[in-house]
Design a protein around this nucleic acid. Structure first.
Lengths: 146, 146
DNA sequence: TTATTAAAAGACCAAATGGTCTTTTTGTAT
DNA sequence: ATACAAAAAGACCATTTGGTCTTTTAATAA
């Protein structure tokens, strides 16, 4: 669905957020290993995310990556768009020529609600909300699980 | 949403089908121009589609591309999968690690119905059904349009 | 049967994406 | 102050994707 960079960024940030909840700041090697991505490539991607302002980092001993709790949460759509543009969310899903709301292509009507659902989801969910879901799931005793 | 090759293939085949309805067999130059794609690249893609058995062609004067009416219609999913695999349709939309039905990642539940809707659409719609929609739309007098 | 037309084949090139590695900088702990 | 640890920077490489162009093959019309 998304390209590799986006996928690694998404998984990496969720993992970092999850660690932050437990007062830890993972480094590049740990993140890469945990999200099953190439180490150096992961490092490069995390650097880009820091430069882009999504994430903070500390160098040197005990360093690593973390989210500034004073910054707002990061909706998935912001993250994804910043990496691969909005081609996944806007425009006609099937790219037929001259497709628009006023002159829709044959699949437009059928695809519109799907695209809307996707947009809703990536706007509502954030890196942090996903991390929290993972955290809660991990820390819910088996007997309580629905 | 899809890559260029898939997009051009999709648009090209729909255009060819639409011309076939009107007993015409367009050539590479015409198809490329009409779907707004690079000429030689379009030619290469159409060749591949012929080799893959989706489409027939005739060389020489009066030649061009056409669909064998004896073959079954082509569901979009078949076309798309043959070009870029099923990565668009299967697997977790967000590629989080270890995501499966039994151990779903945090976005899995939300994404499942979306993926299902996409699958339904690309299974039901065919190149020919899209062409027919375009054809009917074109040949419906304004006053009758809903 | 020849000229012409159009697809097939395939060599080639360009850009984007994915990935590796070394060096430099900066922070921390001792 | 110094050693060490870890991110930052950036050069470099590989693969995939997107695209161009020339030559060959095959069909048709004259």
């Amino acid at each position: 669905m998304f390209n590799k960079e986006t996928e690694y960024a998404l998984r990496g940030l969720v993992y970092i957020s999850l660690q932050n909840i437990q007062d830890k700041r993972p480094g590049t090697a740990e993140v890469a290993k945990e999200i099953d991505a190439p180490h150096f490539y992961t490092a490069k991607i995390l650097q880009r995310l820091v430069r882009a302002g999504f994430l903070e980092s500390i160098k040197g001993k005990g360093g690593g990556f973390y989210f500034d709790p004073d910054k707002p949460e990061i909706p998935l759509v912001r993250l994804i768009s910043s990496i691969e543009g909005d081609r996944s969310f806007s425009g006609c899903g099937f790219g037929l020529k001259h497709c628009s709301e006023s002159n829709p292509c044959p699949v437009h009507e059928k695809y519109a609600p799907i695209r809307e659902a996707i947009n809703k989801m990536v706007s509502e969910e954030t890196v942090q909300s996903l991390a929290l879901k993972v955290y809660n799931k991990k820390h819910t005793p088996e007997k309580i699980k629905k």
